[in-house]
């Protein structure tokens, strides 16, 4: 995937994974990096920004094998944000795909 696209879509990817389930950092990073080739460390600053903006909260939960892990969870505003950004992304992709495939139905 082209590098210019990545950073901009990282946020929607993180929101989207968290919309399905609460994740600890390492788990979230893995979910994303197995599909998109990124520097894994950039996810954490993004999570902190989302936390500052009130879109995610954190809580500690014991893990089976040792120290507690920090889980990230979407807040109500985070869910709204995820929904809006997803809609927007889908519309955008549909338009770009239509253009790339040379369909000429935008004016219809």
């Amino acid at each position: 995937m082209n590098i210019q696209f990545k950073k901009g879509v990282l946020e929607i990817c993180v929101l989207s994974v968290l919309a399905r389930k609460d994740c600890y950092g390492y788990e979230l990073v893995n979910e994303i990096s197995k599909r998109i080739d990124i520097s894994e460390g950039t996810i954490y600053p993004l999570l902190h920004r989302l936390k500052d903006e009130g879109h995610v909260t954190t809580y500690l939960q014991e893990s089976a094998g040792g120290a507690p892990r920090k889980y990230y969870r979407l807040t109500e505003s985070g869910r709204k944000e995820e929904h809006e950004q997803k809609e927007e992304w889908m519309r955008f992709c549909a338009s770009v795909n239509a253009l790339l495939e040379g369909k000429n139905n935008a004016a219809e």
Partner: peptide
């Protein structure tokens, strides 16, 4: 500390 703890946890889980 909050930021550092994210990365130390990342290393800890990765190593396990």
């Amino acid at each position: 500390n909050d930021i550092i703890s994210d990365y130390t946890e990342h290393f800890r889980i990765g190593k396990t």
